[in-house]
Design a binder for these strands. Structure first.
Lengths: 136, 136
DNA sequence: AGAAATTTGTCCGTATGTATC
DNA sequence: AGATACATACGGACAAATTTC
């Protein structure tokens, strides 16, 4: 079988599925997640892919892994699970709007470096952030 | 050869070496890092190990990778050392631009809550940040 | 414009090391 | 000591984005 990764890569899909289970409290916090071997069997994925998925959740602070013991679901901790929201960032050069140009003390239409961040939470766009700096 | 990882694992050693080069400005910021292939040859490590090392630096915000292009050294972050930066913030309701409307899945012109932050440093405007949320 | 080469991204299988039970 | 589970490392294959010719 080839390796077509249409849409989302598998490790992200798997992470999403596990995240959903944790959010839905199908896995009690503090208890152990299925072992990597079990997840390999369930998702029919290689160990590397499973570990990649777990790494995402670990970076989000959702889980914690202990060598030789297993992976546990971290207690909710803080309500502002900032990392649990997904941010998509992109930057590009774009002409300055009049408002931005005035603030940056340049001419409208001059190129500026724009950074755009889209914040999603449970699939829904919560916020759009656009920042502008003078281009080099 | 077996896979003994005495002391530090190799991916961390490699990351350390690259970090040192970046800190010492042996690699100009903005320029491309050696390709993964080149690093494999230099450190005689597999691609996975090299990528593991790069992932560490990426998480530290030291480097940035672009699909098909390569990995660049990020310009030194804002050391938020200079307390001399001043931020002026204001918020208001304003009609959504087409771009923002599309992202928020509303109609262009619909009112959104805008927050604007102007960052000044030694009197000069460095950055303009505009963020948009759906209005209540 | 289009084809080829380059470079990073994803995925798999296997083997071995190390920590915990 | 043995079994279990995570950690590190290798190698190969194909996909996708970018650059080069």
């Amino acid at each position: 079988m080839p390796t077509p990764h249409y849409g989302q890569p598998r490790y992200r899909v798997i992470a999403g599925e596990l995240r959903a289970r944790i959010d839905a409290c199908l896995i009690e916090s503090g208890s152990l997640l299925p072992t990597e071997g079990a997840l390999m069997a369930e998702f029919k994925a290689s160990r590397g892919t499973i570990r990649h998925a777990l790494a995402l959740l670990r970076d989000e602070g959702l889980i914690e892994t202990e060598h030789g013991r297993g992976t546990i679901v971290r207690p909710p901790q803080n309500l502002n699970r900032s990392a649990a929201s997904e941010m998509i960032r992109q930057s590009q050069k774009t002409p300055a709007t009049p408002t931005v140009a005035k603030l940056l003390e340049i001419k409208p239409g001059d190129l500026v470096e724009e950074e755009e961040i889209v914040v999603r939470q449970s699939g829904k766009v919560q916020k759009v952030i656009q920042s502008y700096r003078p281009a080099e």
